[in-house]
Amino acid sequence: MKVYIFLIIFFLFISSCNNKPVEPSETSLIVISNFEFNPTEIIIQKGTTVTWKHDDSVTHKIVSLGIFESENLERGYEFSFTFNEIGEYNYYCSIHPSMKGKIIVK
C-alpha cells in the first residue's frame, strides 16, 4: 500500500514538474484582414521568415521604422521579411496607423 501511495505522490510530483517553457510560435504567416494583423503578436526563432498575406478590401503597407517596409499590398499579395536579429519589432500599417503588430524574435 505504501508503495502505491509513494508511486501516486511520485507521479503527481513528476507531472507537476513538467511545466514546459513557452515555446516560440511556429507561426510565420500573418494574415491581414478586416483592418487587423492576425495574429497581432508572434514569437519566432532568430532566422525565421515571416510572411504577411493580404486578404483585405483595401490597400495596406507594412512598416517597421528603420527595419522593413513593404510595397503597397493589394488583396492576394504577400510580403516577407527574415528576422536575423533577436529583439522586439513593432510594426504598423502606414496607411491605417491604428493597425499595429509585434514580432518577438528569440
Binding site: 478586416n34 483592418f35 478590401s57 483595401v58 490597400t59 503597407k61 503597397n72 502606414s94 496607411i95 491605417h96
Partner: peptide
C-alpha cells in the same frame, strides 16, 4: 504621398459597404 487607390485611407463604417 501614399500612392494608394482613392478612398483607401477611410476606415470601414459598420453596416455600410465600401
Amino acid at each position: 504621398e501614399a500612392g494608394v487607390p482613392f478612398g483607401s485611407r477611410a476606415p470601414d463604417i459598420i453596416g455600410i459597404s465600401r
